[in-house]
């Protein structure tokens, strides 16, 4: 039986928060974007590709959370190989997971709302596509901040 020390267990919680919260935000955002895109495609079948792009945009938050979670799992020793983490490092891991998780939650939902509106705007006026993508991409920045801080915490917190 594998013995998991407290530091590693904390990192596992960090990984859970990272992928859980980011996935929640991304899932809700993508659901909203998909509902808007389906409505657009129902009226104009040519909207399928553009609707798919708008629906795919809120996926990135889940990817950031997933990456941080994988890094935490690999470098905390829970998957074997690396040495176990200290309790302090485990707390840092929770910080990293929370950073990317909560940033992804807000960013994902916001991006979903914008993507849905953009899909509606594009089906109303096809020339809105590029501007719709730009507006939708702006909500990405919060997730990038969370992701960068999580990486910095992992690097300078002694986990990576």
């Amino acid at each position: 039986m594998v013995v998991v020390v407290l530091g590693t267990a904390l990192a596992a919680i960090g990984a859970g928060i990272a992928v859980g919260m980011a996935g929640l935000g991304s899932g809700i955002g993508q659901g909203i974007a998909a509902a808007g895109s389906v409505g657009a495609v129902a009226e104009d079948p040519d909207m399928f590709a553009r609707g798919l792009i708008f629906t795919a945009l809120p996926e990135t938050q889940a990817i950031y959370g997933f990456l941080i979670a994988i890094l935490l799992l690999v470098f905390s020793g829970i998957m074997g190989g690396a040495s176990s983490l200290t309790t302090t490092a485990g707390l840092v891991a929770i910080g990293a997971g929370s950073a990317v998780g909560f940033a992804g939650l807000g960013s994902g939902m916001g991006q979903g709302i914008t993507a849905s509106s953009a899909a509606g705007a594009v089906v109303e006026d096809p020339d809105m596509f590029a501007r719709g993508i730009i507006f939708t991409a702006i909500s990405e920045t919060q997730a990038i901040y969370g992701f960068l801080i999580a990486i910095l915490l992992l690097v300078f917190g002694g986990i990576l």
């Binding site: 807000g106 109303e124 006026d125």
Partner: peptide, 26 residues
Amino acid sequence: VISTIKPVLDMFPYTYPNARVRARSG
């Protein structure tokens, strides 16, 4: 989670119909 999801869930039922009527408005 609750405070951020609540307003989003309120607008969720309107996303599909709004996209359809905006297509018709266009």
